[in-house]
Design a protein around this nucleic acid. Structure first.
Lengths: 204, 204
DNA sequence: TGCAACTTTGCAGACGATGCATATTTGCGT
DNA sequence: ACGCAAATATGCATCGTCTGCAAAGTTGCA
C-alpha cells in the first residue's frame, strides 16, 4: 500500500536521496511562503533563497513555478491496486473497479492531508493552478488508457480513451467535492458519492 | 439560432464594431502565424505587427497569448436552447437534454468549422492550450450550475455542481473524439456517441 | 585514488505580462 | 458643426518566468 505511488524501498543511493530531499524542501519552502504572502507575491527567487539553492536549480526540478506549488513529483501508475484492476478485479464492474484504482493510486498523493487541502483551496481560487494540474494529470492519461486497454481488450462499445477521460473527471469531481467539504471526510466517501450521483444522472 | 452565442443584432456603435473587428483580426493573425511557424515560435510582438496594432493593445483584448490562439471571445450562456432546457425540455431526460443544450450552445462556437478544427489539433498537441481552454470553460461553469439548478430545483440526489462537471466532461470528450476523427462528422454525431458510451460504462 | 557521470550554478537573454502616463478616437448633447 | 467626456490605443519602463550554455562541484564505482 505504501509503495503504490513511489518506487519500491530498494537501497537508494545518496544521489537519489538528496534529489528527493531537495525536491521536498523546495515544495516545503514554496508552501510556507505562499501561505504567508500569497501566490503572486512569491517569486522563484524567494523560494530558492529559502531553500538554499540557486534559482537555476529550481528549474532542474520543476518545469514551472506552479508545479512546486502543486507539489508535483515524478509519479507512475503502478502497485497492487493497479494489478488487480488489470486482472479484472476487485468487483468485476468496470466503473466500481475504476473507482477503486483511482482511490488507491490517484487519491493517495505523496503529500499529507493538510497540505493537500491547502493546495486544493489555492487551486480553486487560482484557475491557472487548476489548469496546470490538469495538464499534469493529462500527461498520465496515457498510462490510464493503457490500463483500461489491458483490462478490457478489444471492446466495441467502450473506448479506452473515453473511459480514461471519465476517470479523470471522476477524480476532478471528487477533488472539488472534497474541497467544498473543507477537506473533511475521506477520499473514499467523496468518490463513492460522486459515482452514485453519476449513476443517478445517467440511469435517469 | 444565430443569436445564441452573440448579442442580438441591435444597432452596434462604431466603437463596438471596431472592437470586434480588431479582436477577430488578432485571432486571424495569430492563427496564420501559428500555422506557419508553430506555437512557440510566434511572439506577441509578431502577432501585433501582422495585425497592425501595438503590443500593449494585445493585452487589452486577451489575458494571455493562448487566449488569442484559442479564439476566446466574450460569451455567455443564453438562447432558445437554454430556455427550453430550463423549462424541462426537450425530452424530459436530464442527460439527453443536457446533451441538447451543449450541442446548441457550447459546440456552436463563434469561429468557423475549419478554424475550430485547427484549434483542436493544436490543443491536442499542446496540453497547455487544452488546460487553458478548460479553464475558460470552467469560468462558465457557474452559469451551467445555475441552469441545472433552475431546471431541477432542490434535488436530493443530483447535485447541480456534479451535473455541471459531467456536462463539461461530455463536452471535453466530444471535442477529443471530434479531433480524433480529424474534424469529420458533426458535433451531434460525436456527442451522441459519447453519451451512449457513458451509458454503456455506467449501467455496466 | 582517479575517472566518468551527474548535478549545481552563474550568466546572458528572450519573452510574457502589467502599471502608468499620454495621445488618439468615438459618442453625444448642444 | 463644435466641443466635452468617456473609452480606447499606445509608448515606455519594469518585473518575473523560463531557457541555453559552459564552468565548477559532487557522487558512484572500479
Amino acid at each position: 500500500m505504501t509503495e503504490t505511488t513511489v518506487d519500491a524501498p530498494e537501497p537508494l543511493g545518496l544521489r537519489e536521496r538528496k534529489k528527493r530531499a531537495r525536491r521536498l524542501a523546495l515544495i516545503d519552502a514554496t508552501h510556507r511562503l505562499v501561505e504567508r504572502d500569497g501566490l503572486e507575491a512569491v517569486t522563484v527567487e524567494a523560494i530558492c533563497a529559502a531553500a538554499g539553492v540557486s534559482p537555476r536549480t529550481f528549474f532542474n526540478y520543476f518545469e514551472t513555478k506552479d508545479d512546486a506549488v502543486l507539489g508535483h513529483v515524478p509519479w507512475s501508475m503502478q502497485g497492487p491496486a493497479v494489478d488487480e484492476f488489470v486482472a479484472g478485479g476487485p468487483t468485476g464492474h468496470l466503473l466500481d473497479d475504476l473507482a477503486a484504482v483511482l482511490e488507491g493510486v490517484l487519491l493517495e498523493p505523496p503529500l499529507g492531508r493538510e497540505r493537500m487541502h491547502a493546495v486544493l483551496e489555492l487551486a480553486s481560487k487560482e484557475p491557472r493552478l487548476l489548469a496546470r494540474h490538469m495538464t499534469w494529470v493529462d500527461q498520465h492519461k496515457g498510462q490510464l488508457v493503457d490500463l483500461v486497454e489491458r483490462r478490457l481488450g478489444p471492446d466495441p462499445e467502450r473506448d479506452p480513451q473515453t473511459v480514461a477521460v471519465l476517470a479523470m473527471h471522476l477524480t476532478h469531481a471528487t477533488f472539488l467535492r472534497w474541497d467544498a467539504a473543507g477537506g473533511a471526510g475521506t477520499a473514499h466517501e467523496h468518490l463513492t458519492h460522486v459515482v452514485a450521483e453519476l449513476r443517478a444522472v445517467v440511469v435517469d
